[in-house]
Simulated assay, not measured.
Amino acid sequence: MLLPDVGLVIDEPYISQILAGDKTWEMRGSRTGKREVIGLIKKSTKHVFGTAELYACEGPLSYEQLLVATDKHGISREKVEAGLLDKWNYAWKLNNVVEFETPIPYNHPNGAVTWVKLSNHAQQANKPNNSSPKAQQIVTDKTLSKQQPVNSFQTGTMAEKTDVPVAKDGTVFSSELARNGFFTVGEKGDEQKFRSFEDALHYLRNMNKAKWRRPNDKGNWGIVSAMEWR
């Protein structure tokens, strides 16, 4: 069988609930535009445990909507009342769930916490995995090229323009964008912080559209989206 192009990292107990058919909404802190079959990755295992069709996204859901949908998102009424879903109020809706008899290993790239790109190679998912570690590796992950320091986030004065995202206003993601020692990247509401510029850049490469925080010409920090890569 063919693995999907991407996999979604899901923590326990939620991934087991999805695979068992007890949970059809994966709750997240932001909207997703993906509408496709995805791999279901159990967090911290580096294995794909199954697939599902991500067919819709709804949100942000109100407190009342979350209370009456416990059978869909798998969070108890008590936990909803305690505020567990206050910041995780977008329902990523799943159906056609398939659980693999034997989970499939993959090479997890540094910094990938939500989406992981999976190579689209044929795999015998329902056979015991007796192949060598080299043969089992089903994700092709390009090694990050060594990034040269960028002297400015303004494109006109960049020292290097190699493989970094560029926003509509001409600003780029550079090694000078650390704030309090961290680079902040990702969707609003699901932002990730990295101390390493290379790890943050790697995360941006795995996003559907790279987004990061940077200061504008007035010094105010905000999120921008990549229009191109240079």
Rank of each mutant, 00 (worst) to 15 (best):
T155R: 07
K218R: 10
T24W: 06
M27V: 04
E53I: 10
W212Y: 06
P103C: 12
M227D: 06
Q154V: 15
A56S: 12
Q136E: 13
K79T: 02
F194Y: 13
V166T: 08
S76M: 07
L40T: 03
A69P: 04
A91R: 06
F153K: 06
S131W: 10
H202A: 15
N96D: 11
D22V: 00
P133K: 08
Y63K: 14
Q147W: 10
G186L: 00
V68E: 12
T45M: 06
T140H: 05
M227P: 00
T140N: 08
E58F: 07
I10N: 00
L204W: 03
N206W: 05
Q17T: 05
E12R: 15
G50E: 05
Q136C: 14
P103A: 14
H202L: 15
K188G: 09
W92L: 08
N107I: 14
D11V: 09
R28A: 05
K146L: 15
R179A: 13
A20G: 07
Y55C: 11
E176D: 11
K168T: 05
R179K: 13
F173L: 08
R195V: 13
D11N: 14
V9C: 15
V224W: 02
V68A: 06
P215L: 11
Q148L: 15
E36K: 01
L54A: 02
V48R: 00
I18M: 08
K193C: 14
P60C: 06
G21L: 05
S174Q: 02
T140V: 12
G59N: 00
D141K: 12
